[in-house]
Amino acid sequence: MKKLNEVLENKIQGLYYGNRVLLPFAAEVLKLIYRNDIITDFSWKKKGARYKIYDDYMEIYFCETEDLDREIEDYDVIKMVVVEKGEDLFDFKNHRRIDLRLLGKHKLAIEKVEDEMLFFE
């Protein structure tokens, strides 16, 4: 399994197909911003988004979307606060802010949220 730092430093890309995003690391998602949706409830009761963590990767489904390509614009990103699998969830120092940018042809850039960008945890 790749570590998040390794993914960010080496600019390893994720994948997306339709409404499904695949990320090459495993992490708990605390907060996710997709367009106008601020999603913090990932339970089955809510339709916003769900995610699953596997041994080598994780996946996120955007339940209200059929195709991310059609909804996300050129400079738009999906922003997330995540805690890498195995790290202490309750220590704020482990809360990592990343964004996902669609590159086309199913490729997904994974980047650290830059200081210039607006993102409230």
């Binding site: 106008n36 614009e73 050129d74 400079y75 738009d76 990103v77 830059e114 210039e116 960008m117 607006l118």
Partner: peptide, 14 residues
């Protein structure tokens, strides 16, 4: 700048 502002048309579209 567009990237840092995360510029998109959604607010004006709304």
């Amino acid at each position: 700048i567009l990237k840092y502002n995360e510029f998109e048309f959604e607010p004006i579209r709304e």
